[in-house]
Nucleic acid binder design. Structure first.
Lengths: 343, 343
DNA sequence: TGTTAGCACTCTATGAGTTCGAGTGCTAAG
DNA sequence: CTTAGCACTCGAACTCATAGAGTGCTAACA
């Protein structure tokens, strides 16, 4: 469909546009190393590439910019991965140097470094905490009417909620309840927690605790309240650095989408394996039609843990980002597996 | 120093400019209700006000805008507080309607509502967690080499850190350690925690636990790691809504300052009582020289808890914000005191 | 003496007209 | 098939003129 020369020209055009953000003309292309034809020949080829929908013009007599289809072809067929520079690796690995052993912290920092390195926005999606398994439950009374419930999971994640208790409750009742809960619920995933709570422990509680009703009701309620999930952003403000985003209205929409964690399922292809690239309108959200999102998944052992994404303009440096994400994904999988291999 | 009429004109000018964001001319002013003089007279007065430094011109033949001094005089002498509209009150109070009993959650939500109501950015500073007092300490082993330390404070705040432990540690040693820690450290403020840890418990631990050294070292280290303090932002993106901020560079600086919690001491007059207004360059940070910050403190019982701030353009609706913050401060103090009166 | 009408003046914002340059498409020659 | 040449197009930058809002000043008026 496309000749060798057309492929070359397409590649160089996209590369140049990614670098310069300016429409690329035939004269510029003719000067590039690796291109031997004259500008006139290139013009013919450009016209052909435009005819086939790989390139576009911004106005009748402008240079060409890649179309959505052009970018797509570029990332699918023309992308030659280049190795991640040593200094990037050093920075990325600094996350593991320190004595930080909390998954959340590691992920959060990785997000920061990635955005710093790329000047784009990064989104790191942590493991689904609902899969985590209860390691220990406890209830700490605070004042006569209040207590805090704490759940520790096997991954070291700690969930806590304040809830109200009957003011004149016998402290030993709480102790009993905690014992029952721990006996029954250790090893249960957070996802199943409320079902098991209802099914198994309710009867036991009724049996042993006088005023189980009031206590249980608010406790259950506290555990059900959804909590912020584990999404971490790095460099949200990098959007403002991109010359591609100058319309303040667009920026607002875009940041709005990111601000509230709601739209994660639409931004990231959750569950997808390996590396995914979504260009422009391939994104589900209208606010992101001028963006590209590159995503990789990472995992601990055999289990998929989460995703890493970089959000940038369509004109993003695909080559660099792809290599970088590839590296980070592997590294994170390896290191986290090592940390939690006992799991 | 200023005549009655000049005061009136200054007030109306500032009001109009706050509302319209456009320089105010003598003809516009003459049409305002409450103003009886002709535009020519007003021109004289405007010239006088400009001479005294309360007003400025953007160019030789433009209308007037308030100067920093003008705003200052306005908020100090011309501001007539108006009651908070019922519907705002309803929205603000919705925070307490739900069964949310966590201070943090209440504060966080208040920040959200405030920014929604005002279209400005809100910053809510929670109580200094270092003043909180340890209610309970526990250590939960996760895997052979790791454990998580949990500290519950009297306010229901839960701090947790993962730390490494000797892989072959006797579980009973951990239990002993937790017992000693709880015996010695309950009632100690987080601020004093590490001192007391060193002074009182170290000797005891040495006495009772064989391998206290390794265990203690990483445990202490984990507790020392600083954690995000309790600052909550509402509507960071509202900055992008303000027509006063059109320079993308300025916006970036401003958001940068807010993104990292570092600059809180410079943004908010911490420790100040009552309502504070900082206009333009009265702010410590260069990035905020075009902003005004209105702050109030709130407290629980007699103890000062934190601050609430609204950040907007210099041309912000001082009247409305002052009333609003005044209300929120009182309301929050009242409700939080009620919640924690047992404290 | 304070107020006001009138008027010349200033400055910005807007839009039309020009020029410049980069780039194209087409044609004809190699 | 490739390339040189050329007419043409269009945006960006610049100039120029105009309209309009606003000022400051002066002189008349109450």
């Amino acid at each position: 469909m496309l000749t060798e020369r057309q492929l070359l020209i397409l590649k160089v055009t996209v590369d140049d546009y990614i670098q310069s953000a300016q429409p690329v003309g035939s004269n510029q292309l003719a000067k590039k190393p690796g291109i031997t034809s004259s500008s006139a020949t290139i013009r013919n080829e450009l016209a052909e590439l435009e005819g086939q929908g790989y390139l576009e013009k911004t106005h009748t007599s402008s240079g060409r910019i890649p179309s959505q289809k052009g970018y797509r072809y570029y990332v699918d067929h023309l992308l030659t991965p280049n190795p991640v520079p040593q200094q990037d690796i050093v920075q990325l690995r600094s996350v593991f140097e320190e004595k930080v052993t909390e998954t959340e912290e590691i992920i959060k920092r990785s997000a920061g470094i990635l955005s710093e390195l790329t000047n784009y926005t990064s989104i790191l999606l942590g493991p689904d905490i609902r899969k985590h398994v209860v390691k220990k439950l406890s209830i700490v009374p605070l004042s006569p009417g209040m207590a805090v419930a704490i759940i520790v999971t096997d991954s070291g994640h700690v969930e806590n909620r304040v809830f109200s208790i009957p003011p004149d409750l016998d402290p030993s009742d709480i102790e009993k309840m905690v014992n029952i809960l721990n006996e029954r619920l250790i090893g249960v995933s957070l996802h199943d927690l409320h079902i098991r709570l209802e099914q198994e422990t309710l009867a036991l509680l009724r049996q042993h605790i006088e005023r189980y009703g009031e206590l249980f009701r608010t406790f259950k309620q506290a555990l059900l309240l959804p909590r912020s999930d584990n999404v971490y952003y790095g460099g949200k403000l990098n959007i403002l650095k991109q010359p591609d985003f100058h319309d303040i209205q667009k920026i607002r929409e875009l940041m709005d989408v990111m601000e509230e964690g709601k739209h994660i399922p639409e931004i990231l292809p959750i569950g997808a394996q390996g590396l995914q690239i979504r260009i422009g309108s391939e994104n589900a959200l209208a606010a992101m039609e001028d963006c590209s999102v590159i995503t990789v998944s990472y995992d601990i052992g055999d289990e998929q843990m989460g995703s890493i994404a970089i959000v940038g303009p369509k004109r993003m440096d695909y080559r660099r980002i792809v290599s970088l994400l590839d590296y980070v994904s592997g590294d994170l999988s390896k290191e986290l597996t090592r940390l939690f291999q006992g799991k």
